[in-house]
């Protein structure tokens, strides 16, 4: 319902930026690889970057989801169904990866990136991804059974894309990563771009139990004031009797999740997950928001080609 199609023009601009950065990083990475050829016995020497590999998956799931916007609920049966087309591909350090542990969208969860350096226990990547989904208030109201005066006539909010430096640290059965992203919202007719910092961190621990994979995860994300204000702030031209002027402050999001996967056959696996999200209390001061604790539950099947 809230899924936005990328603004292709904006995406193209981001891709151009990424390409330029890739050119620089590829050159330096190549040099680094050459200089390290002579010290392969060194335990800290880089390990090989991802070779050409790909995997295509289709995910079909039932999901009970919540969003922070006031009075917005899943109303129709098809609101609970999610179809994800997930493509993972890597070549010489470049990668496009979908999130096969989530079923929201192929685009919304995709990451385009390049491995700057790959070490035994850690890795540094440059990432291009959509960090925040947008929403179209008119479309939301259309899909709801009741009128939502707080959203009526509100300007559309576009998605936020970001280019990030990602540090990942690998443990035996766990991974921790942190993104430092320079993020920019999309531009609509009424609002200008908003720029800001996003710091997104996540820890995921794999607990194998017989044929099950159980992932226990926790994450903490910081959103710059300008970005939060873009989504839940109320501009002067948006003020109504139900929607007073509001300047939003910066915000945090904490997440806890459990995800489990079980093989059904060589091509099918069963998956289920529960995510509990906590946003900082101040977001409830916005007239657009009525909750800062969200519970999301999904159950589905994944087909691997």
């Amino acid at each position: 319902m809230l899924i936005k199609i990328f603004n292709l023009l904006t995406l193209q601009q981001w891709l151009t930026r990424l390409f330029v950065i890739f050119c620089f990083t590829t050159a330096s990475a190549s040099y680094a690889a050459q200089t390290n050829n002579g010290i392969t016995s060194n335990a800290s020497a880089p390990v090989v970057k991802d070779a050409f590999e790909w995997q295509f998956m289709v995910d079909l799931s039932l999901a009970s989801t919540q969003i922070i916007l006031a009075d917005v609920e899943q109303t129709e049966p098809w609101d609970y169904f999610q179809l994800g087309l997930l493509l993972d591909i890597s070549y010489k350090g470049f990668f496009l990866q979908s999130n096969s542990r989530r079923s929201l969208t192929a685009i919304g969860s995709g990451e385009l990136g390049y491995q700057i350096t790959v070490q035994e226990n850690w890795q540094l990547d440059i990432i291009l991804k959509a960090y925040i989904e947008g929403f179209d208030p008119a479309e939301i109201i259309n899909n709801q059974k009741q009128n939502i005066p707080q959203l009526a006539g509100l300007n559309e909010r576009e998605y936020t894309g970001g280019i990030a430096l990602r540090y990942s640290h690998f443990f035996d059965n766990a991974i921790f990563y942190i993104d430092f992203a320079n993020a920019r919202t999309g531009k609509n007719d009424q609002k200008d771009y908003a720029y800001g910092l996003i710091i997104d961190s996540f820890y995921s621990h794999l607990v194998p139990y017989r044929n099950w994979d159980i992932y226990l995860g926790a994450g903490l994300t910081y959103y710059d004031q300008a970005l939060v204000d873009y989504y839940i702030g109320i501009d002067a031209d948006e003020v109504t009797i139900n929607r007073p002027l509001h300047d939003a402050d910066s915000g945090f999001r904490a997440q806890l999740e459990v995800y489990a996967q079980y093989p059904l056959s060589q091509s099918w696996s069963f998956n289920a997950g529960l995510t509990q999200t906590f946003y900082s209390n101040n977001i409830k001061q916005s007239p657009l928001v009525d909750k800062n604790k969200l519970t999301q539950l999904m159950i589905g099947v994944l087909y691997v080609f």
């Binding site: 991802d50 995997q55 989801t65 990866q97 989530r102 995921s204 995860g217 999740e257």
Partner: peptide, 14 residues
Amino acid sequence: VHKNTTVRRRWRLF
């Protein structure tokens, strides 16, 4: 189901 690849993923749900 999944081939053993060199790719070390870091996924989460939502």
